[in-house]
Design a protein around this nucleic acid. Structure first.
Lengths: 152, 152
DNA sequence: TCATTCCCTATTTTTCCAGTAGGGAAAATA
DNA sequence: TATTTTCCCTACTGGAAAAATAGGGAATGA
């Protein structure tokens, strides 16, 4: 299960907008420099975020991008879905569209449970929380367990 | 976050071996037919599983594959790791190797939390449980929530 | 000896990811 | 109005990885 560069970049860009505040425009170039993201590639991502309704944009001299909603009203999951489609997929299709037979029949509920557990984290945490380094207690609990950092 | 065809196939093949029993050999061709997996592709996957120590093989007339350990001692996570490497990765690298700056600093613990929550499911559930359609209570609880099946 | 089955290496085909290029349209500024 | 700035759009490319195929070699049992 891998998280794409696009998703990673999108979240980081959104976080830059979150710290700037909902009514301050930030130029794509500034975000690219701050987070080390290829400028043109980032422009495409910001376009996705705009079409997804998460970001508003303004052209011209004092233009740039800003969040379309308060940072505490946008979850990480929303950002990822807008740029990457479904949060979790198996062989490219989302779990409910799969069909298994024989001893594999219980695989479907298993993937559903995985997805639910991913949603629990990414759907709950907002841009504001990450930007302020104030993750919710339960998430922090998971992340602080030393075993969560071990390799395999 | 997508689960590859290889991982999906590997788990399904392992499930077929699980129902056959630890001391019954099953031919690759039989597994391929039962689960609708391309035969030659499956052979490669079974090779990975063998090198990973999860299955044993036997050549010749009455040959085939069987699990190297009891089905209730092999987790789904193990199967996936053997064929696909790390369970969760960001831009191809596993979370502990990432480095973020500025407002993105808390992204790292967030990915760690996601990974921990995925492990919680896939590391706990065994081949025996899926094959027998007897998922653990907590996993079933997640999978039974109707909201877990909704689309976005 | 012969059929069977796993085993190994190489090759292909396809798909998608990540990044690039260049110019057009809107807005502010002067 | 002219100019600069910035977003916006389309297309394209290179490369890697995923998915699958092909063909034959090595062991095993009958």
């Amino acid at each position: 299960m891998r998280i794409s560069a696009k998703a990673d970049y999108a979240v980081r860009a959104a976080l830059e907008l979150a710290v700037a505040g909902e009514d301050t425009s930030v130029k794509a170039e500034a975000i690219a420099a701050a987070q080390g993201i290829p400028h043109k590639f980032l422009e495409g991502i910001l376009g996705d975020l705009r079409r997804g309704g998460l970001v508003a944009s303004q052209r011209g001299g004092k233009g740039g991008y800003r969040l379309a909603r308060p940072a505490d009203a946008i979850s990480i999951a929303e950002v990822i879905r807008v740029v990457d489609g479904p949060l979790v997929s198996v062989r490219g299709v989302r779990p409910p569209e799969l069909s298994y037979c024989g001893p594999a029949e219980s695989l479907l509920p298993l993937w559903i449970a995985v997805r639910a557990n991913v949603r629990k984290i990414l759907g709950e945490v907002t841009l504001a929380e990450v930007a302020a380094a104030k993750l919710p207690g339960d998430v922090l609990g998971l992340a602080e367990d030393p075993e969560a950092w071990t390799n395999p």
